[in-house]
Amino acid sequence: MYMFKYVLKRLGLLIMTFCIIMLMCFTLIKLLPIVVTVQIGQDANIIYRQLEARGYITNVVYDSATQLWSYDTVPILKQLGFYLQRIFQGDFGIGVSMAEYRNQPVWDIFMEKMPPTVLINVYSTLIGVPIGLGLGIFAALKKNKWQDQVISVFIILLISVPSIVLGLIVQYVFCFKLQWFPLTMNSGFDYFTWPMFRSMLPAVFSLCLSSIAGYARFTRAELTEVLTSEFMLLARTKGLTRGQATLRHALRNAMVPIFPMILSEFVLVLSGSLVIERMFSIPGVGRLYLDSITYQDYDFFMLLSGFYTLVGLAAGIITDISYGFIDPRIRMGAR
């Protein structure tokens, strides 16, 4: 019951925080001037009428003498009402200023951009977690021997090298010098073919290298702590071999803080890495977000901001809750 109540409470807080943040974003966005871009060959009338129909502006008047359009902005609260109404109908808006996505539903574009981002991050987690955990466990078992020293140096190097530089190195060495992979990701939608997978690999490597280091460091720290605790001595005294004791007692206990970390990483990777996506020209959500800023497409911006905020909040709550599920000794929210 504790758990149930705690989860409910956390969910409530999450929704509240999310709503406040989105409200802030919405207000701040709506305080900006509306960008009306009329391309050559487009009918300005249609564009203004569209904006009017979307509830952004009202009283659109065209003065044929000065050739100027004039309009009034709808009050923000009223716009918020319209916006919420549309969202509940599943309409997140329509692309306005990005030429590629003009007049296309924002949600469809967003869903179209999700697969590359998710795939790259899932691959990188799939590669990163086993290697990272393995290295961490190995280093902990060989503590203060040369193997541990080598792994530690490797870890500190990988953690210190920023993802920008890591990406550049991967791109230069593997894509340019050795030419094992194409420089940037292939375009197209056939995500599960070999050429596509191959073109994703550099980005996957750059992403997973730093997460490997993170996992290894954390696992090593946790496991060395558990290995020195007294119940390990007891386990050995009972007659368990070193392997058995490590696997059944030490590792299980060490996993308590590690597993939530993996879970939250897994959720956080949905949001991807803007830098890596840009570097390898991955047609993902990050790119869309950057474009929406550059071209000031507010519907895209709102949707993507909401997405990023939600992912961040969800990662936090999942981490906290998973502690309780993994380790029955921890009762979250109990006094």
Partner: peptide
């Protein structure tokens, strides 16, 4: 501070930049 902390920093910077 909780609410401020959960706004992704990218969004803060973007909004500031737009304004």
């Amino acid at each position: 501070s909780d609410i401020l902390a959960s706004v992704p920093s990218m969004i803060v910077i973007t909004l500031l930049k737009l304004h």
